[in-house]
């Protein structure tokens, strides 16, 4: 099964590839993996005043995993923490037209978003203590 045009586009021109320093102010880091295929995904958000001002990712895996995380960073930018929580893997599946065998890639991206948000929250809570 061939990849959809959108997957190919994200694969060839990944958006927001890279990383922030983990201990940087307002940065939340999510690292997740898929044990079945061994794909590894790192997704980071930079938050200011409850809004995600920047997002970056690094993914080592198949085209769908790269496209899913690339798309996720695009969507995250400009969203509030609350809005970001609402991103679902099914939204990614729909946008990228992922076939059933690649749905786990979108799940991985959702997990990465959740992990990054949780990490940001944890760091913020520690600061206010």
């Amino acid at each position: 099964m061939a990849y959809s045009d959108k997957v190919v586009d994200h694969f060839n021109n990944p958006r927001n590839m890279g990383s922030f320093k983990k201990d940087e102010e307002g940065v939340g880091t999510g690292m997740v993996g898929a044990p079945e295929c061994g794909d590894v995904m790192k997704l980071q958000i930079k938050v200011q005043d409850d809004t995600i001002v920047d997002a970056k990712f690094k993914t080592f895996g198949c085209g769908s995993a790269i496209a899913s995380s690339s798309l996720a960073t695009e969507w995250l930018k400009g969203k509030t923490i609350e809005e970001a929580q609402k991103i679902k893997n099914t939204d990614i599946v729909q946008e990228l037209n992922l076939p059933p065998v690649k749905i786990h890639c979108s799940v991985l991206a959702e997990d990465a978003i959740k992990a990054a948000l949780a990490d940001y929250q944890k760091k913020a809570d520690e600061k206010t203590k």
Partner: peptide
């Protein structure tokens, strides 16, 4: 088994 897959990759 999971960690082995990551290392193998």
């Amino acid at each position: 088994l999971s960690n082995r897959t990551y290392v193998k990759n």
